[in-house]
Write a protein that binds this DNA or RNA. Structure first.
Lengths: 187, 187
DNA sequence: GAATATAAGGAGTCGCAACCCCGGTTACAA
DNA sequence: TTGTAACCGGGGTTGCGACTCCTTATATTC
């Protein structure tokens, strides 16, 4: 598999970025809306991504990988508690458009493909390691296991987005959550 | 507007119930799947609900009204804290199919119609009153305002559903949340 | 139990959006 | 510069699902 020609690579990136925008705003958007925004013919979109679902998955994968990288960066931080809670807050703050994409995928009835699944796995592992460190540092209570903490991460993102929470209310919501996660961490 | 004929009323209920089932499992389902399950012709579905969105809204409205009624019942309870947390847990436990429906609606790009909006409003008010009482009883901290608590309710439902949480993990998740909501309630 | 309004059913129609074809264009190598 | 393989564009095609027409059936009323 030879490297892509320069214009093709360029178009691919423009399509991905446009798709992120378009589907982020409305999961029901059509493929040529993406093509229009990317200033590219429809055929070009389908040449790069053989199906609409493939395009959605590519966008989702990209986002998950970005989150994983962010988590990995933070894993080296001195303050494990700050790293954990900071990551959590950031994910919730940026969740709006990512959610719409995941929604579009699940609405299309498709279970995520291999690539997206792997990206999700990587992201969860990185987050899990942040959680571990925060627990060892005494910043998060030890009896909080990964599944429920991860559900809270996803849930906080969705809840904030779905109810259209203002940023200050979102901060108060997170403060409530964090109090629950810290409760009795010292013991 | 005369009362519906008996068979029509019967069919209407069967359609609503079938729609709840079908859309609860897969938001992308087609209208005749609903008709099939309800053992009814497609035309009958459209006679009762002029559009697919109208059908989705009717299902959602019904669910929201049930939740509101449940909240109103609990408002008379002796133990305001138990009432609040009990309602919260129940909503989260039953959320799976309701969410799929709300998702289907938002995926179709439609903002909820008047009826569904009113039902949502009624439900939120009933929940708000449960929160008020729980706060006055000292079971929930006073600095938790409605928007963030409601976002947590929605978020916990979605998080639990989206991550496929087992029921015991769900209970632990709720326990974390409740600790956060109670923190310093005595002060 | 006959008349009639009301409802049911299911084979259509119609539009939309995913996906393909093929003639023209452009990056890259020699 | 020129050849050519890779790429692009945008008008078709096709399938699917929302919605309708019209004939037949059945509840209700007197």
């Amino acid at each position: 598999m030879r490297p892509l020609r320069a214009d093709a690579r360029d178009n691919r990136m423009r399509i991905l970025s446009a798709a992120e925008d378009v589907f982020g705003q409305s999961p029901a958007a059509s493929t040529d809306e993406v093509a229009k925004l990317a200033e590219v013919g429809i055929a070009t979109v389908f040449r790069h991504f053989p199906t609409k679902v493939a395009l959605l998955e590519a966008v989702l994968t990209q986002r998950l990988e970005r989150l994983r990288d962010r988590a990995l960066e933070l894993a080296d931080s001195d303050d494990a508690g700050l790293a954990f809670f900071g990551f959590f807050s950031q994910v919730v703050a940026e969740s709006a458009s990512k959610l719409a994409i995941a929604e579009a995928l699940s609405a299309s009835g498709t279970v995520a493909g291999d690539e997206a699944k792997a990206a999700g796995q990587g992201m969860r592992e990185a987050f899990g390691s942040l959680l571990d460190r925060a627990q060892q540092a005494g910043a998060v209570r030890r009896d909080a296991a990964f599944p429920e903490v991860y559900a809270l991460l996803v849930g906080a993102s969705r809840g904030a987005t779905a109810t259209g929470l203002e940023s200050d209310a979102r901060d108060r919501m997170l403060a409530l959550l964090y109090d629950g996660l810290r409760a009795g961490a010292g013991s």
